[in-house]
Computed example of a mutant assay.
Amino acid sequence: MPFAPGNEKAGEKLFKTRCASCHTLEKGGSSKTGPNLHGLFGRVSGQATDSFSYSDASKKAAVTWEEGTLFDYLENPKKFMPGTKMAFGGLKKDKDRNDLVTFLKSSTA
């Protein structure tokens, strides 16, 4: 199933419970275990200008983060990008990924 716009409020809740321990969203925000996600859409994996230390897998994958690529990645990050440092196991439900991607699209611009 491809990406379809989801529920932004449900996506915000998912971000807070599943992502916020490792990622920040605000412009100029610091990186945690994972990189700051501000400006994520249109960015190439492993290429942000912050000081985050990306895995070689992320740098070499050169994935442009858009709704579809992020939807696919979030299902199983290690399968999508073997060698990634992201420890997150993924979101198996399409609805959850649609909701989270919808939230991220609006909150990282």
Rank of each mutant, 00 (worst) to 15 (best):
K79Y: 09
L91W: 04
K93S: 08
M1W: 14
H23V: 05
P2L: 12
A57H: 06
G90E: 03
A87M: 13
S55P: 04
C19A: 09
K16A: 14
A20L: 11
F71Y: 06
K13P: 05
T102P: 01
F88L: 03
A61S: 12
G46V: 01
E75D: 09
E8F: 08
R18Q: 15
L91D: 03
G28Q: 06
D99H: 06
R43G: 06
A4V: 14
G28F: 11
L100W: 00
K27R: 12
G39S: 08
H38W: 11
G42S: 10
L14E: 06
M1D: 15
Y73A: 00
K59D: 04
D99K: 03
S45M: 02
S51K: 10
C19T: 05
Y73H: 04
H23S: 04
L74A: 01
E12V: 12
T64S: 07
A109C: 04
E75P: 03
E66Q: 09
M1R: 15
K59V: 09
A10V: 13
T102A: 06
L74Y: 00
K13E: 15
K27C: 10
A62S: 13
T24I: 14
R97I: 02
A10P: 10
D96N: 10
V44C: 01
K59M: 08
V44Q: 01
N36A: 13
